[in-house]
């Protein structure tokens, strides 16, 4: 009984989050994205963003970005209280336009990487990370 109710609530929450996400995401990340792109159009593709499908704990989620030809890559977590995560700026001695780090996600959400290419164009990739709540005080 208890389980069923919780399950239902979780599902309801999931639906609510899905429908609310695009609006909230735009509002949340708009400022950071505009500052990074100057309002330029962002293409899909050209960026590889690797994240786990499910994170065992939202405190430490591995994120890897790779965008050949990029001068910088910004990572955003649009569902966090502050959407900014980090920006990799690649210098002349970078061996690849690649970076890997560990990030905090406050809940299940989309993680987005936007790459600024050497020619001034922009490209992005997004992936959803499900953040689980542990059983033991988590």
């Amino acid at each position: 009984m208890k389980f069923t109710r919780r399950d239902t609530m979780l599902m309801a929450g999931g639906v609510a989050a899905l429908s609310a996400l695009p609006i909230r995401a735009l509002a949340a990340g708009e400022e950071e994205i505009a500052a990074f792109t100057g309002g330029a159009a962002i293409a899909e593709g050209g960026v590889t963003l690797t994240t786990p499908e499910i994170a065992e704990n939202g405190n430490t989620v591995p994120v890897e970005v790779n965008a050949p030809g990029a001068v910088s890559i910004m990572v955003l977590a649009l569902g966090n209280p502050n959407p900014g995560v980090c920006t990799f700026n690649f210098g002349p001695l970078a061996g690849a336009q690649y970076g890997s780090t560990r990030i905090r996600l406050s809940k299940t959400q989309m993680v987005t990487a936007i790459a600024k290419m050497a020619d001034g164009s922009f490209a992005q990739a997004s992936s959803e990370v499900k953040v689980t709540i542990g059983g033991c005080g988590g």
């Binding site: 405190n59 430490t60 989620v61 977590a77 966090n80 502050n82 900014g84 995560v85 980090c86 920006t87 990799f88 700026n89 690649f90 210098g91 002349p92 001695l93 970078a94 061996g95 970076g99 780090t101 560990r102 990030i103 905090r104 996600l105």
Partner: peptide, 16 residues
């Protein structure tokens, strides 16, 4: 000469 220059926000985990 620079290799990489990263800007960190509070969403980077403890022990970066």
């Amino acid at each position: 000469q620079n290799v990489i220059d990263v800007t960190l926000e509070p969403a980077i985990s403890t022990n970066p």
